[in-house]
Computed example of a mutant assay.
Amino acid sequence: MTQRVLTRLGRVNPTAAFLGVGVLVFVALVLPGVVGAVVLLALAAGAGWLLAQTWRVHPPRARVMRLVILGLVVLLAVAKLT
């Protein structure tokens, strides 16, 4: 199943994926409290899963940047909870 999901994600237009995630982050930041935090945590979980599946193909510098961005999304979600 994982390979099937990765194959489908590989066919997605990168611009559409970027804009779609951007819209979801914006909506999550606008939504109040716990609801927005749950959306952000779901996005972080999906991005974390994708990063784990593609870890070997990224150069070390890209890995670090992706981990930093993932950490920032989780921090935003935790801040939204408080």
Results as ranks from 00 to 15, higher is better:
residue 1 M to R: 15
residue 2 T to D: 07
residue 2 T to W: 04
residue 2 T to G: 14
residue 4 R to S: 07
residue 4 R to L: 10
residue 5 V to T: 13
residue 7 T to R: 09
residue 7 T to G: 07
residue 7 T to Q: 11
residue 7 T to Y: 03
residue 7 T to L: 07
residue 8 R to G: 06
residue 9 L to C: 01
residue 9 L to K: 01
residue 9 L to A: 03
residue 9 L to V: 01
residue 11 R to D: 09
residue 12 V to D: 02
residue 14 P to I: 01
residue 14 P to D: 05
residue 15 T to V: 15
residue 16 A to C: 12
residue 17 A to N: 00
residue 17 A to D: 01
residue 17 A to V: 00
residue 17 A to Y: 02
residue 18 F to A: 15
residue 18 F to S: 08
residue 18 F to M: 12
residue 18 F to N: 05
residue 18 F to E: 09
residue 19 L to N: 14
residue 20 G to Y: 13
residue 20 G to L: 12
residue 21 V to Y: 07
residue 22 G to T: 09
residue 24 L to M: 15
residue 24 L to H: 05
residue 25 V to F: 11
residue 25 V to L: 15
residue 26 F to W: 14
residue 26 F to Y: 14
residue 26 F to M: 13
residue 27 V to N: 01
residue 27 V to L: 11
residue 28 A to G: 09
residue 29 L to D: 10
residue 29 L to H: 12
residue 29 L to C: 15
residue 29 L to M: 15
residue 30 V to M: 12
residue 31 L to I: 12
residue 31 L to M: 15
residue 32 P to V: 09
residue 32 P to A: 11
residue 33 G to V: 06
residue 33 G to E: 13
residue 33 G to T: 11
residue 34 V to S: 08
residue 35 V to L: 10
residue 35 V to G: 04
residue 36 G to K: 08
residue 36 G to Q: 07
residue 37 A to N: 11
residue 38 V to T: 14
residue 38 V to Y: 12
residue 38 V to F: 13
residue 39 V to M: 13
residue 40 L to V: 05
residue 40 L to Y: 02
residue 40 L to R: 00
residue 42 A to V: 06
residue 42 A to R: 02
residue 43 L to P: 11
residue 44 A to P: 05
residue 44 A to Y: 10
residue 46 G to Y: 06
residue 46 G to N: 06
residue 46 G to F: 12
residue 47 A to H: 02
residue 49 W to Q: 01
residue 49 W to M: 04
residue 51 L to T: 12
residue 51 L to S: 14
residue 51 L to H: 12
residue 51 L to M: 15
residue 52 A to W: 14
residue 53 Q to C: 06
residue 53 Q to I: 03
residue 54 T to P: 03
residue 54 T to Q: 09
residue 55 W to I: 04
residue 55 W to H: 10
residue 55 W to D: 10
residue 55 W to N: 05
residue 56 R to H: 13
residue 56 R to D: 14
residue 57 V to C: 08
residue 57 V to S: 14
residue 57 V to A: 14
residue 57 V to Q: 14
residue 58 H to R: 10
residue 58 H to C: 03
residue 59 P to A: 11
residue 60 P to C: 04
residue 60 P to G: 08
residue 61 R to G: 00
residue 62 A to Y: 07
residue 62 A to H: 11
residue 62 A to N: 10
residue 63 R to H: 05
residue 63 R to C: 02
residue 64 V to H: 02
residue 65 M to Q: 11
residue 65 M to P: 00
residue 66 R to G: 02
residue 68 V to P: 02
residue 69 I to G: 06
residue 70 L to K: 09
residue 71 G to V: 11
residue 72 L to V: 13
residue 72 L to S: 05
residue 73 V to R: 02
residue 73 V to D: 03
residue 73 V to A: 09
residue 74 V to T: 01
residue 74 V to C: 06
residue 74 V to L: 07
residue 74 V to K: 01
residue 75 L to V: 11
residue 75 L to G: 04
residue 76 L to K: 00
residue 76 L to H: 03
residue 76 L to N: 05
residue 77 A to H: 05
residue 77 A to L: 07
residue 78 V to E: 01
residue 78 V to Q: 00
residue 79 A to E: 03
residue 79 A to V: 03
residue 79 A to M: 03
residue 82 T to P: 11
